[in-house]
Amino acid sequence: MEVRTIKVFTTVDNINLHTQVVDMSMTYGQQFGPTYLDGADVTKIKPHNSHEGKTFYVLPNDDTLRVEAFEYYHTTDPSFLGRYMSALNHTKKWKYPQVNGLTSIKWADNNCYLATALLTLQQIELKFNPPALQDAYYRARAGEAANFCALILAYCNKTVGELGDVRETMSYLFQHANLDSCKRVLNVVCKTCGQQQTTLKGVEAVMYMGTLSYEQFKKGVQIPCTCGKQATKYLVQQESPFVMMSAPPAQYELKHGTFTCASEYTGNYQCGHYKHITSKETLYCIDGALLTKSSEYKGPITDVFYKENSYTTTIK
Score class of each variant (00 low, 15 high):
F9M: 12
T10H: 07
T10D: 14
V12Q: 09
I15A: 06
I15N: 14
N16W: 10
T19Q: 04
T19V: 13
V21W: 15
M24A: 15
M26N: 14
Q30W: 11
Q31N: 12
G33N: 02
A40E: 15
A40R: 11
T43S: 13
T43H: 11
T43Q: 10
I45G: 14
P47G: 07
N49P: 13
N49I: 12
E52K: 13
F56M: 12
D63Q: 08
V67Y: 09
A69E: 07
Y72W: 10
T75S: 13
T75H: 04
T76F: 09
T76E: 11
F80R: 06
G82Y: 09
M85Q: 09
H90Y: 14
W94A: 07
W94L: 00
Y96C: 07
Q98N: 11
G101A: 04
S104E: 00
S104W: 07
A108R: 08
C112D: 05
Y113I: 00
Y113D: 07
A115K: 02
T116G: 08
L118T: 08
L118G: 00
L119F: 02
Q122K: 05
I124Q: 05
L126A: 04
P130C: 11
Q134A: 11
Y137F: 13
Y138V: 15
R139W: 05
A140Q: 04
R141Q: 14
G143N: 05
A154P: 08
T159K: 15
T169R: 04
T169C: 13
M170T: 05
Y172C: 15
F174K: 07
A177K: 00
L179G: 07
K183Q: 12
R184D: 00
V185E: 06
N187M: 14
V188T: 15
V203C: 10
V206M: 03
Y208F: 15
F217N: 02
K219G: 07
G220N: 02
I223K: 08
C225T: 03
C227K: 01
G228C: 06
Q230P: 12
Y234Q: 07
Y234N: 02
L235Q: 08
E239R: 09
S240R: 02
F242W: 11
A247V: 06
P249L: 04
K255A: 07
K255M: 09
T258Y: 08
T260S: 06
C261Q: 08
Y265Q: 01
Y265S: 01
G267H: 04
C271Y: 11
H273R: 00
Y274C: 00
I277G: 00
S279Y: 01
K280V: 06
E281L: 04
L283G: 01
Y284F: 09
D287G: 01
L291R: 01
K293C: 12
K293M: 08
S295M: 15
E296K: 12
G299C: 00
F305H: 00
S310P: 07
I315H: 15
K316H: 15
